[in-house]
C-alpha cells in the first residue's frame, strides 16, 4: 500500500496544496491587477521591486504588512474584530474545496455531490465576516460599510443561486466534476445554452466580491474604505488576500459551470493539462473583472437593489423556466 492510497496523507497533501495555492493565486492576480490597471491608465505600474517588471512588489507589500503594528481600536468589540478577517479568508479558502482542477478525484479536494450548493453557501459566509468587521470597528464609516455589505447580500444572493439552477437542470447534477463531464459529453460549454445564466452569475459574483461597480461596502471616496478602515497589518492582509482569492475561486466556479472547466471541449489536449486549461479560462474571467474595475464608476446601493430585484431575479427566473421546458421537451 503506497502512501498515496492513505486517505489522511492525501488529505494533508491536498490541504497543503490549497494553503499554497491561495497566496500564490492572490499574488498572481494582485500583480496582474497592478500591471493591467497601470497599462490601462498609461502608467507603468510596479517597476523596480525584484529587479525587473516589479515582480516582487506584492511580496514586498506582504512583508510590509507583517511588520505593521496590529492596531485594534479602543472601543472595538475585540473578539469579533479579531475573528472577522479570519472568517472572510475562511470562506475564500473553503471555496477551493470543490473546485476540480483536473479529471478524476486527484485534482479536487473533495468532489461533493452538492458541490455547487456548498460553494454558494460557503461564499456567503464571507459577507458575515464583513458585517462583523464593520460592526466591531467602533467606527461609523465601517458600520455603514458593513451594513451595505449586508444589504448587498440580500440583493445578489438570490440571482447568484437562481442563475446556477439552469446549469444544474442541464447537467442533472450538482457535483462540479459532474457538470464538467456533462459539458464534455454535450460537446459545447454551457455558456451557449445558458448565456443569460452566465451573465447573471458573473454580475452577482462581482457584487459578492464587492468589486467595482459594486464596491459600495468599501467605497473609498465616501466611506473611506468602509469596513476596512480600522484594520491594519496582518488582519488587513487577510482581507486583501481574501479579495484576490475570491476573484480566483469565483472565476474558477464560473469557468467550471459555464466554460467547461478543466475540459478544453473544442480542442484535443492531454488530460494532464487540465489545470492549465482551467487556469487559462480563469485568466480570461479575472481579466474581465480587472477591466471592469478600472473602467467603470461605482453604482449606488439603491440602484443595485432595484437592478437585482427588477432585472436579475426576473431574468434568471425566466431562464430557469425556459431551461426546464427545454429539458422536458427535448
Amino acid at each position: 500500500m503506497s502512501l498515496l492510497d492513505s486517505f489522511w496523507f492525501v488529505l494533508v497533501l491536498k490541504m497543503v496544496s490549497i494553503a499554497t495555492l491561495v497566496p500564490v493565486a492572490g499574488l498572481l492576480i494582485g500583480y496582474a491587477e497592478l500591471k493591467i490597471s497601470a497599462h490601462m491608465q498609461h502608467r507603468v505600474g510596479p517597476y523596480f521591486a525584484g529587479g525587473r517588471w516589479g515582480w516582487a512588489q506584492l511580496i514586498a507589500d506582504g512583508v510590509k504588512f507583517f511588520q505593521k503594528e496590529d492596531i485594534i481600536p479602543a472601543d472595538a468589540d475585540r473578539p469579533v474584530f479579531k475573528w472577522a478577517p479570519a472568517l472572510v479568508l475562511l470562506s475564500a479558502v473553503g471555496l477551493f474545496v470543490v473546485i476540480p482542477f483536473g479529471e478524476g478525484d486527484v485534482l479536487v479536494v473533495r468532489d461533493l455531490d452538492i458541490g455547487i450548493f456548498y460553494a454558494l453557501a460557503i461564499s456567503s459566509i464571507g459577507t458575515i465576516g464583513i458585517l462583523m468587521a464593520g460592526w466591531s470597528s467602533a467606527n461609523k464609516y465601517s458600520l455603514m460599510g458593513g451594513l451595505r455589505a449586508a444589504g448587498q447580500l440580500i440583493a445578489y444572493e438570490l440571482p447568484l443561486v437562481l442563475s446556477v439552477i439552469g446549469v444544474v437542470i442541464l447537467a442533472e447534477t450538482m457535483s462540479l466534476n459532474g457538470i464538467v463531464e456533462a459539458q464534455a459529453s454535450w460537446g459545447i460549454p454551457f455558456i451557449v445554452p445558458q448565456l443569460i445564466g452566465f451573465v447573471v452569475f458573473y454580475i452577482a459574483a462581482l457584487a459578492e466580491m464587492s468589486r467595482i461597480p459594486f464596491d459600495m461596502p468599501i467605497a473609498e471616496s465616501e466611506l473611506v474604505t468602509g469596513f476596512l478602515t480600522e484594520y491594519s497589518g496582518f488582519r488587513f492582509l487577510f482581507f486583501f488576500l481574501a479579495e484576490f482569492a475570491n476573484m480566483f475561486t469565483f472565476s474558477a466556479i464560473a469557468a467550471t459551470l459555464f466554460l467547461g472547466g478543466y475540459d478544453p471541449i473544442f480542442f484535443d489536449v492531454p488530460v494532464a493539462l487540465g489545470p492549465l486549461v482551467l487556469a487559462s479560462k480563469i485568466a480570461i474571467l479575472v481579466f474581465l473583472m480587472i477591466w471592469f474595475r478600472w473602467t467603470w464608476p461605482r453604482i449606488r446601493e439603491d440602484q443595485l437593489q432595484s437592478f437585482a430585484w427588477k432585472w436579475l431575479i426576473p431574468v434568471s427566473l425566466a431562464n430557469i423556466a425556459i431551461t426546464a421546458v427545454f429539458k422536458v421537451v427535448f
Binding site: 491608465q41 498609461h42 464596491d215 471616496s221 467603470w296
Partner: peptide, 15 residues
Amino acid sequence: PLELGAATPLMFAFR
C-alpha cells in the same frame, strides 16, 4: 469620476 469610484479618468485627466 474618482468620487464616483472610477479611477482611470483621473490618470487620463492628470496626464
